[in-house]
Amino acid sequence: MSALVHQGLDPQGYIAREGCLARVPHAFRPVVAAARDRLPDTFGARLHSAYLYGSIPRGTARVGRSDLDLLIALHHEPTEADRDASRALGDALDERFPQIDGVGTLLYGRARLLSDLERHDLGWFVACLCTPLLGDDLAAALPHYRPDSLLARETNGDLALLLPRWRDRIAGADDSDDARRPLVRFMSRHLVRTAFTLVMPRWNGWTSDLREMAEAFAAYYPTRAGQVRTAAALGYEPTGYAETLRSYVDDLGPWLAAEYTRVHGVKTPRPEDG
């Protein structure tokens, strides 16, 4: 099957950086401005740079439904006090702006983001999926990236390691739709992205749209297409059904982890994997 060439790629075949401040929808610009204003006060001289990612810089955010996604790079590895400050900032922004549904913040030290170990995971994430908001852009110190098997392995080749943790999270959640809905949203999105990167080198392109990801996967794995299309829909409009979560950790997840290992191998272990 021929790949769709150049979607999400630049003329040289590298993944094009998605998102920019000019694409931020009008309703979300006060949120972005407030985050930009408060970050220096929150982290002071520890702050190296900050970035937006997700639907807001891509221009696809929905008022009252989308969250504000931030990546914060510090000059040194974050401390527990830094994490507390990050959570407090997110809570304050979420309370002030009804147009967002929460704030998700990733917090890392500059050295880790630029490390060889993270070159094709967090480094790629910064260089291709993050939009600079404050400070010197770390992408200048990172390479260009192609949608190849190395990138696939290092971004999502750890699903087998994650599945036991997911089972623990499901077991520990309250027995209610409201408690399960965030888990369905998170796991649906992760599985669709993993399904997409499984076929990404053959599809030869990049997209962050869950439905486009599901369709790319479906072209190569038609017998699993329905499950991944359903997961893509639930990634945008999650339900709280317990059977959905069970199917993720008992069926789709284990199959996808095994197939991923067969095709791309296993992600390089991180120290926190223990």
Rank of each mutant, 00 (worst) to 15 (best):
L129H: 15
A127Y: 07
D136S: 07
D137H: 08
V126M: 02
L134T: 08
E118F: 07
L114D: 06
L129R: 13
D121T: 08
G135Y: 02
W124R: 02
G123S: 05
A141R: 14
G123W: 03
D121S: 15
C128F: 11
L114A: 07
A140K: 12
L138Y: 06
A140H: 09
C128G: 10
L138G: 06
V126P: 00
C130A: 10
E118Q: 12
L117H: 07
G135Q: 03
G123R: 01
G123P: 06
H120E: 11
T131M: 09
L134Q: 03
L114P: 00
E118V: 09
S115K: 00
D116I: 07
A127I: 05
R119L: 14
T131K: 07
L129M: 13
L113T: 11
D137N: 13
A111I: 10
F125P: 00
L133Q: 03
L114Y: 09
C130K: 00
A111Y: 06
A141T: 09
V126Q: 04
L114S: 12
V126C: 08
A127S: 14
A140G: 08
A111Q: 09
D137S: 08
A139S: 14
D116L: 08
H120N: 12
G135P: 05
L138Q: 04
G135F: 01
H120W: 15
E118R: 01
L129Q: 13
G135S: 07
L138D: 06
A111R: 12
P132Q: 04
W124T: 02
D116E: 14
G123Q: 03
A111N: 05
L138P: 01
D121H: 12
A139Y: 03
L114C: 09
D116A: 10
F125T: 01
T131A: 10
D121C: 15
G123I: 05
L113Q: 03
W124E: 05
R112Q: 12
C130D: 00
V126W: 00
G123T: 06
G123N: 03
R112T: 10
D121N: 11
L114K: 05
L113C: 15
S115N: 01
L138S: 02
G135K: 00
G135V: 03
D121M: 03
A127E: 05
V126L: 06
D136V: 08
